[in-house]
């Protein structure tokens, strides 16, 4: 029992020393970023002041991402909310050599072939933006309001499966949140479980 106690105290120390990685918080200003898109243009959060910004982390080879592209769910959401005035940024944080990493040309081809409609696709090769947002999975969704305050983060819907057939029966968290923020309301829930593949930093 004595040795257990020592080990336990060791664990406590480890906890105290362990660094807690900072995640963004709903209700707080969203982390700023400066990332190039597929056209070589640099985008910052401050460029979109006054507009609702939706962030989508993606990895085209991830089955959970495929679920939402094969079903046309993601493209529909992109189209609907960019038409309603939101900025939709698709972010690729896969490191070179890892799954989901693409060149600017490949990314544009993916957008074209899948009939996707984001405002821009950001190439976050360094993973800096992904880490700033603590993006964990693909897909992982964020909604930022016109004042730059993070209003929603988490999973795109309530069914964490890779099966497109599950989409119609799931609660569309991202769609609800985007609609609320565009209407000036507070999303509920504002935080949902992100599900999918691990972001390949």
């Amino acid at each position: 029992m004595k040795s257990l106690h020592h080990v336990l105290i060791g664990g406590l120390l480890a906890l105290a020393l362990g660094s807690a990685h900072a995640a963004p918080r709903v209700g707080q200003p969203a982390p700023d970023f400066s990332v190039v898109d597929t056209a070589g243009q640099t985008h910052s959060l401050s460029d979109f002041a006054g507009q609702t910004v939706i962030l989508e982390w993606t990895n085209h080879d991830c089955p959970f991402v495929k679920k939402h592209y094969v079903s046309d769910n993601m493209q529909t959401l992109q189209r609907r909310y960019t038409e309603e005035g939101a900025v939709w940024l698709t972010v690729i944080s896969s490191a070179p050599g890892k799954q989901g990493h693409v060149s600017a040309e490949q990314a544009d081809a993916l957008t074209r072939d899948r009939h996707a409609a984001p405002t821009a696709v950001l190439l976050d090769e360094s993973g800096d933006m992904g880490r700033a947002y603590d993006a964990r999975t693909t897909p992982h969704m964020y909604v930022i309001d016109a004042e730059g305050v993070l209003r929603f983060m988490g999973g795109i819907d309530s069914n964490p499966s890779a099966d497109p057939a599950d989409i119609p029966g799931a609660t569309p968290y991202l769609a609800n949140a985007a609609r609320a923020v565009l209407a000036g309301d507070t999303p509920d829930p504002a935080v949902t479980r992100p599900y999918g593949c691990t972001v390949k930093y």
């Binding site: 029992m1 106690h5 336990l8 105290i9 406590l12 480890a14 906890l15 807690a20």
Partner: peptide, 8 residues
């Protein structure tokens, strides 16, 4: 991923 603090 965070450490667990286990005490008696």
């Amino acid at each position: 991923a965070e450490a667990q603090d286990i005490t008696l």
